Amino acid sequence: MDQKTYNVLFICTGNSARSILAEALMNQLGDGRFRAFSAGSHPKGEVHPLTLKTLAAQRLPVDGYRSKSWEEFARLGSPELHFVFTVCDQAAGEVCPVWPGQPITAHWGMPDPAAAPEAQREQAFVDTFVTMKRRIQLMLALPLASLDRVALKTRVTDIGKN
């Protein structure tokens, strides 16, 4: 059985909603096999209040999250990353730092729930949470130890299309 712990970084432009939801979900569902982080190319400096409200409603921890730059994970001494996922279209088009260790990258884009009209915003956060949870569950079901790098890259890329 594969006992390796995989480090996963979720990137979004502002690191206040989608990437934070993904970090929380992967840490919860990954059950110690995965350690998730999140960051932004242009961090907003604070986590969106509806992100924390959504996590609390799903009975996930809400403490310790902060909006931070992806540069924290490209520095010497940062955790070795095995996977890096962009979760917004803007970050996917930006030039990312060179990640030490050549992690597998994929785009799991989805609309920004914070940009939804105010009357639909809370539901947009819930919908984002549900979509991200499904994608993470699909990833967790992959036989990571038995897939070669090319097959694994293909599978995690395909997950982002669902």
Rank of each mutant, 00 (worst) to 15 (best):
Q102M: 08
D89F: 02
L144K: 00
L9D: 00
S67H: 11
L147R: 11
A119W: 03
Y65E: 03
S41D: 09
V150K: 10
Q123E: 09
G30H: 13
A124K: 11
F129D: 09
K133W: 03
R35M: 14
A92Q: 12
A56H: 08
F129T: 00
L147V: 06
Q120P: 01
P61K: 04
W99M: 15
L76T: 15
C12E: 01
W70C: 02
S146M: 13
I11Q: 02
G109S: 11
E80W: 04
T157Y: 06
I136K: 01
N162W: 06
P143W: 08
S38H: 08
L52A: 05
V87W: 03
W108T: 05
R121T: 02
L147Y: 02
F37C: 04
Y65A: 12
E46P: 07
S146T: 14
C12T: 13
L52T: 05
D112Q: 03
R155F: 02
I136S: 00
F10I: 10
A106S: 11
R35T: 15
G45Y: 06
S38P: 11
M1N: 13
F10L: 14
K68T: 12
D31Q: 13
K153W: 09
V62S: 04
V62R: 12
S19I: 07
T5I: 14
Y65K: 07
T128L: 01
Q3N: 05
T13E: 14
T105V: 05
S78V: 08
P113S: 11
V130D: 13
V84E: 08
G160N: 07
Q28G: 00
G40F: 03
S78H: 09
M26H: 07
M139E: 03
W99P: 03
G77R: 15
Q137M: 13
V62T: 15
L140M: 10
E71V: 06
A141M: 07
C12W: 10
H48T: 09
A92V: 08
V95Q: 15
W108Q: 13
G14C: 06
E118A: 11
R18I: 06
L25E: 06
A141F: 03
V62N: 04
